[in-house]
Write a protein that binds this DNA or RNA. Structure first.
Lengths: 136, 136
DNA sequence: TCACAGTACTAACGAATGGTTAGTGCCTAT
DNA sequence: ATAGGCACTAACCATTCGTTAGTACTGTGA
């Protein structure tokens, strides 16, 4: 309960300590934020937006396998936390564009690095799995 | 369906293309591997192991809020994919130690970087949330 | 001496989350 | 005329998650 959000309740919080986030603490809000970002579809959406802004349908096609519901949900979460910006052009047919915010533009490369790291190590992973499964 | 695992089905796959992993493809095994690694508890366990090897109970206390079931499950996944090594000392009481493999030792810092990045941006995230929620 | 905490887990169950399908209203292309 | 694209939401169900309890054994405190 200690080192969590510095927003409310006590009224007085040491500003330096206020946002001393600690994911290892159960109650820390940073844990939730981290989950939003590392979520299966959020992560993919963010890295997809790294190239360029995309419309909803474009993202849907780019992120193969995502349902409209999940994509919508993920994007809403990312928008709320300030990683992506949603711009609606009131036209018919509707035109909605998603782009990274400055914060998102800092975040996304790190996610991409993680993705490519795992991709590059897939041979190792497969070997490890076979190894593990063979010794039952 | 194209650039997926190089294991089966066609029988013949260009070795160079065989593991050309692409997370954006639905069927690519790298997507599953990525999820194992970025999972809520797996991520936390990996970064916890960055300091030093830990026993099961130590990890459980370190990663505040994790249940024994979920920790066990996560660690098994990480072991299977070759990110952590599990060493059993057949003694009574049982002594089981988890440590990062070389691959895991490369991976974990990237996760930690992600974690600290998000932690550091929590003030921004909170501001974005309030902003977003206020304009309903 | 005798109950209790610690060790590393697994099994069973209810709750929460994720995913699938269908529907919205309007337009364009065939 | 009918199919499909646009960006979603609502309802439903399958899968996963988390909680509680149980295992076999020992060291520790009362």
């Amino acid at each position: 309960m200690e080192r969590t959000q510095g927003s409310a309740e006590t009224g007085e919080v040491d500003p330096a300590e206020a946002f001393a986030a600690d994911v290892f603490s159960r109650a820390c809000t940073s844990r939730g934020a981290l989950e939003h970002v590392t979520g299966k579809w959020s992560l993919l959406a963010l890295t997809a937006l790294l190239d360029a802004p995309h419309r909803f349908g474009e993202l849907r096609r780019r992120v193969d396998g995502v349902s409209e519901k999940m994509l919508s949900q993920s994007l809403q979460g990312l928008e709320r936390d300030g990683w992506v910006h949603r711009e609606v052009r009131s036209s018919i047919p509707p035109h909605v564009e998603y782009r990274l915010t400055p914060a998102g533009a800092e975040l996304a490369p790190r996610l991409l690095a993680l993705v490519t790291f795992v991709e590059d190590h897939m041979p190792e992973v497969h070997r490890a799995r076979e190894d593990h499964d063979s010794r039952s």
